[in-house]
Amino acid sequence: MTGGSTTGDDGAKAPSSGPREPRAAWPLWEVFVRSSRGLSHVHAGSLHAPDAEMAVRNARDLYTRRNEGVSLWVVPATAIITSDPDAKDQFFESPQGKDYRHATYYTKSEGVKHL
């Protein structure tokens, strides 16, 4: 599996040049917003913050300026594990062609009520 952000890059990083200030660079956080009660948290974007407490506050300031949310999650970008991008064909092949998992596969029952 590949670590890193959902919106992040997984390897082919452009070479970064020039001086870096590792202590001053704040880590990247992914932000998830619940827009109203009853809905899931949805990925809204990312931001930089020195720690989790500031990240959730920055997320509030940045991603809910227009009443967009009732709840927030922030996750360190490095904590997100994603499926392997190189293997996505194999990884997601199995459900292909298994139409019988969908209601629309069963045409004969059309018109029958409450089914």
Binding site: T7, A12, A14, S16, A25, S46
Partner: peptide
């Protein structure tokens, strides 16, 4: 943020 996903950090 969008540019960072291409591999260049914001700083």
């Amino acid at each position: 943020s969008a540019a960072e996903t291409l591999g260049t950090p914001r700083d």
